[in-house]
């Protein structure tokens, strides 16, 4: 599924304005295959906005983002490289855990069979609840459904907005391992978090939007 060549995500001189307030400006970074970018900053500093700009949902006031040397505006398959989990995680509350994942993977265009999906559900610890409506799960369990989707989609660039919210300690450790594995497989990661996330230092870049 993954291409051998090195992918590069590069942001040049980004500036974001919401209404009349400037959230951030002069943001530069570059990450390559196997690298992670951790976005830090206080509440309201524009972390979510930056992530949405990266996904192409919002537009920056200035600056540009390029993927493998081509600007993402009008890039034909950039958005198909992304798995995005935002504050609203794209989980349908009126579907069961299993249904959510089955539909999600069909929409991204992969065709795993049900046993593989069940394995992933087991790995996020929701096997017993697989036929329960997501509405009835706890906040942390809903988050787990969203994170299970990541592993299903097999996309190159993971863009995660506060993925650790409501997760318990043991699962955070499991999830860190999933992230490390993703980086080892030449994946890329852009993540915001207020909690400590243990990732290999050599592969992790940090930017702070409040600075």
């Amino acid at each position: 599924m993954r291409t051998e060549e090195v992918s590069v995500l590069r942001a040049h001189d980004l500036k974001c304005v919401k209404g009349s307030t400037e959230l951030f400006s002069n943001i530069h970074f570059q990450i390559e295959s196997g690298e992670a970018l951790v976005v830090e900053g206080s509440n309201g500093s524009g972390k979510t906005s930056l992530l949405r700009i990266l996904c192409g949902f919002n537009y920056p006031a200035e600056g540009e983002i390029s993927w493998c040397g081509k600007t993402i505006d009008g890039h034909e398959d950039y958005q198909q490289q992304i798995s995005y989990i935002g504050h609203a995680s794209g989980v349908k509350l009126d579907l069961t855990v299993l249904e959510n994942l089955v539909f999600a993977q069909r929409l991204v265009g992969s065709d795993r069979d049900e046993t593989e999906i069940k394995d992933i559900i087991r790995s996020v610890g929701l096997f017993k609840q697989r036929n329960v409506l997501t509405r009835k799960l706890s906040a942390g369990q809903k988050r787990r459904v969203a994170l299970a989707r990541l592993q299903l989609e097999e996309r190159k660039l993971w863009v995660l907005d506060e993925p650790l919210t409501a997760l318990d300690k043991e699962f955070v450790t499991d999830f860190e391992n999933v992230l490390k594995k993703h980086l080892e497989d030449d994946g890329m990661l852009v993540v915001t978090t207020h909690r400590e996330l243990l990732l290999p230092d050599s592969l992790t870049k940090k930017i702070n939007l409040s600075a």
Binding site: C55, F57, Y84, G86, A88, V91, K92, A104, L107, V108
Partner: peptide
């Protein structure tokens, strides 16, 4: 309405398939 609330709209645009089709 619900798609906006639960974040499914974003996922429509990240799909392998054309958003117009979905």
């Amino acid at each position: 309405r619900q798609d906006f609330d639960d974040g499914s709209v974003e996922q429509l645009f990240l799909s392998q398939h054309p958003p117009t089709l979905l």
